[in-house]
């Protein structure tokens, strides 16, 4: 079926000006409501007629959700801050450049102008069966089309797959995990703060969503502690096209070394599983070791332990191994005389 290009199905549009109003609206409309941040994930679902919410709650009018504030211990980024703002923000560039690098590599300029940090970490998977409206596990059905003998699964998971083999497509998520960010949620019971890596869930916990938000919950801010400010950062995203493409895989690491020994490190990858993976075993294994190729090699091999390829995504194992290696030991710059 061709791509539909006419007007979206009708919905009611609410544009609250405060988080409290937004929450009231979400409470009132329950599962009929759809939260709209930048809208770049949302409109796909609505335009393709795969999701048909009766009510759309647009968060773009809520000033308190926008902007970057310094706190006593780091910064707080409003969930509706655009990716362009994140990528260009002087404090983020100066102290938490890992996040700026990740945000800069998201999709395209227009999308970064509109897409938000909250939306980027909360977006749904890009599995082309699921996004195409196929009635798979994630969509409430009882099959995974990507994990069939002939299924096309080049971009799917090599780790922690359970029935569903979709992956999380966010670029900023692993950077935030590496920076030990905290996600601030507003739920019916009040404010809740979770570690970045706990915001994301795999199909073993809930096969229908990639994050812990329940209907009615809002992600309002992301706090980055100063713990990793100015650390040595590494971010790399491998994608097919050099703009407007999701990661085949990405890696983010924050590291503090002394005498070239790794003192502290956090490292995460995305595109390998349904959630961005913090590689805790790797962190533990390399801590205290010299920052060199041997440590990188060891870390890479450790990272992919237990990885199970599907028919078309075996490349993700060496890719993840090598990206983790580089995130620890770096990569040599190559310049040829032209």
């Amino acid at each position: 079926m061709a791509v539909i290009r006419d007007v979206m199905a009708a919905f009611e549009l609410y544009q609250p000006s405060s988080v409290a109003d937004a929450q009231k609206l979400l409470e009132q409309h329950g599962s009929d409501a759809w939260v709209l941040a930048g809208g770049l994930d949302s409109f796909d679902w609505l335009k393709d007629r795969i999701k048909k919410p009766k009510v759309v709650v647009d968060l773009s009018g809520i000033e308190e959700l926008r902007g970057v504030r310094t706190t006593t211990d780091g910064i707080e980024i409003g969930a509706m801050t655009t990716l362009t703002e994140v990528a260009n923000h002087p404090i983020i560039k100066q102290k938490y450049d890992l996040l700026a690098q990740a945000a800069e590599l998201v999709a395209s300029p227009q999308i970064r102008n509109q897409g938000t940090i909250g939306g980027n970490v909360s977006q749904d998977t890009r599995c082309w069966y699921y996004r195409g409206g196929w009635p798979c596990y994630r969509a409430g059905g009882n099959i995974c089309y990507a994990d069939t003998p002939e299924g096309r699964n080049r971009e799917h998971a090599i780790l922690h797959a359970e029935r569903c083999v979709a992956v999380n497509p966010s670029d900023t998520a692993p950077a935030l995990i590496a920076l030990d960010a905290k996600f601030v949620l507003r739920t019916r019971k009040g404010e809740r703060v979770v570690d970045a890596e706990d915001y994301f869930i795999g199909p073993d916990i809930d096969i229908t969503r990639l994050h812990i938000l329940q209907p009615g919950d809002l992600l309002t801010a992301i706090r980055i502690p100063s713990t990793w400010a100015g650390a040595q950062f590494y971010f790399e995203k491998i994608r097919d096209r050099n703009v407007w493409d999701f990661p085949l895989m990405n890696v983010a690491s924050a590291m503090v070394t002394s005498d070239d020994r790794i003192e502290r490190i956090r490292i995460a990858v995305n595109g390998a599983a349904a959630r961005p993976l913090r590689l805790k075993a790797v962190e533990d294994a390399v801590r205290g070791r010299p920052r060199n190729a041997a440590t990188g090699e060891m870390a890479g091999k450790l990272a992919v332990q237990g990885a199970v390829p599907l028919q078309f995504n075996a490349y993700k194992i060496p890719l993840m191994r090598n990206l983790v290696k580089r995130a620890i030991s770096g990569v040599q710059e190559a310049t040829w005389a032209s």
């Binding site: 089309y145 096309r152 999701f246």
Partner: peptide, 15 residues
């Protein structure tokens, strides 16, 4: 890209 079992297009989008 189409799924050879179902004969359906899966690569409808530019990305």
């Amino acid at each position: 890209v189409f799924d050879p079992h179902y004969g359906q297009m899966v690569s409808k989008r530019f990305y």
